[in-house]
Amino acid sequence: MSESLSPLGFIVEETLLREVILPEEIQAAIQEKLTAQQESERQEFINSQERQQLEFTIEKAQKEAERQKIEAQATAEAQRILSQGLTEQVLRLKAIEATQKLAESDNTKVIIIGGSEAGTPIILPGQ
């Protein structure tokens, strides 16, 4: 356009085109490209969501494993401390306390004192 208007003394710097009609093959190619781009972005979003869910699941499992490890360590430490403090006298005292609670129970009918080797009472249910 500027070549044809130049000899007449017109200088064309810019041309604005309106209502450009592209051939159907080009329109179809543009539409296909846009559809493929949107599908690609949608798949990226889905992959991102799945990755986040997987990371959350892994982090949750790791925290649960750490909690169970800490709980097991605490249980082991408690058992170690208890086993160090358990003496024959403490065990005998606990047996006596348990026997006393059983004797006070409404379900207890017959108690035999000194019936075991450890000297703890034997409680027999009544008929």
Rank of each mutant, 00 (worst) to 15 (best):
G114T: 02
Q53M: 10
Q68L: 09
A98Y: 08
E39D: 11
T99E: 11
I26R: 07
G119V: 04
I112R: 05
V90G: 04
K69I: 03
I21Q: 12
R80E: 15
T15E: 09
E66D: 13
T57E: 15
I11H: 13
A72D: 04
K94V: 12
P121S: 02
A65Y: 06
I96M: 12
I81M: 02
Q62M: 07
L86T: 08
K63D: 11
T99S: 14
E55T: 05
R51G: 01
S105P: 02
A76P: 00
R18H: 13
L5E: 09
S105K: 02
L91Q: 13
V110F: 02
A76Y: 02
Q31C: 00
A65L: 07
Q37H: 09
A118F: 10
G9H: 01
F56T: 10
I11F: 11
S40N: 10
L34Q: 12
Q68D: 15
E19N: 14
R42A: 14
A28L: 06
A78V: 01
P125F: 09
L22S: 04
S116P: 01
F56D: 09
A61K: 12
G9N: 04
Q38G: 04
E32W: 02
V110Y: 03
E50V: 05
I123H: 03
T57Y: 06
T108Y: 02
Q53D: 13
S105C: 03
L8K: 13
L17T: 05
E41F: 06
I26F: 07
I58H: 04
P125M: 09
K60T: 14
G114D: 11
E3M: 14
E50D: 07
E3Y: 14
I123V: 07
K69W: 02
E25V: 07
Q27Y: 01
A28E: 10
E41D: 11
I21E: 12
A76W: 01
E59Q: 14
E3S: 15
A61Y: 06
T120K: 05
V90S: 13
A76C: 01
E19H: 10
E25I: 05
Q79F: 02
A78S: 03
P121W: 01
Q43Y: 05
A28G: 00
Q68Y: 03
